Computed example of a mutant assay.
Amino acid sequence: MGENTVRRDRRGKVGRIGEDLAAEFLTSLGWQILDRNWRTRYGELDLIAADGPSLVIVEVKTRASHTYTDPVAAVTPQKLRRMRLLARQWLAARPDGAPWWEVIRFDAVSVQLDLEHPCDRDRARLRHHVGLVE
């Protein structure tokens, strides 16, 4: 197995751990997860959730390194624009028709895993960033 394959496998594992932790966190707040890893040719939405009357599109950023002080620093204005485009596509693709949402919000959950023990979920630090703006 080549170095690139190992790095890609580790990145995928780290990402899955972060998304699972973020989904569990949001569910503990009483949110309903409507969709996970929704994809089109234009990109992917990590989590789509309902927080009462609000539809919340959640970008999950997970790191097992110290590249950024907070992994949310990787959510660029370009990424936020793509999230908006994908949210419109998700709403249009709903087979039951999109219910009316009072608010459509874009949040991020940053997950910093322990550098030495990235699979130890108890050592992970989560931070919820509400209402991303460009």
Rank of each mutant, 00 (worst) to 15 (best):
A87F: 02
K79M: 12
T62C: 08
W38N: 05
L55G: 01
E44H: 03
R36Q: 07
V72L: 07
L55Q: 03
G43R: 09
L85E: 12
A92G: 12
L80E: 02
R36K: 06
Y42Q: 14
A73W: 09
L80G: 03
R81A: 07
R82D: 12
L45M: 08
E59P: 02
R36T: 05
E59V: 05
V60E: 00
S54D: 12
M83C: 10
Y42C: 15
D51H: 13
R63F: 14
R88T: 04
G43Q: 09
H66F: 09
Q78A: 11
R36M: 03
D51I: 10
N37K: 10
R63M: 13
T69S: 15
V72W: 01
V56A: 03
Y42L: 15
A87N: 08
D70S: 13
T62V: 04
L45C: 06
L80A: 05
G52L: 12
T40L: 07
R63W: 08
L45I: 09
V75M: 03
K61C: 07
S65K: 04
L85Y: 11
R88W: 10
R82T: 13
I57V: 06
E59N: 07
L80R: 02
R81D: 08
K79F: 08
M83Q: 06
V58G: 01
I57S: 00
Y68I: 04
S65R: 08
A74L: 05
N37L: 10
L80M: 05
L85W: 09
L55C: 11
Q89Y: 10
R88G: 10
W90M: 04
Y42S: 15
Y42V: 10
G52N: 11
Y68L: 08
A92I: 09
L45K: 01
S54N: 12
A73G: 09
E44C: 10
A50K: 09
K61T: 03
Q78T: 11
A49P: 03
D70W: 06
Q78P: 01
V60K: 00
A74H: 04
R63C: 11
R39S: 15
E44S: 13
A74E: 04
E59C: 06
Y42E: 13
R84G: 08
V56I: 05
T40M: 09
Q89P: 02
S54C: 15
R39P: 06
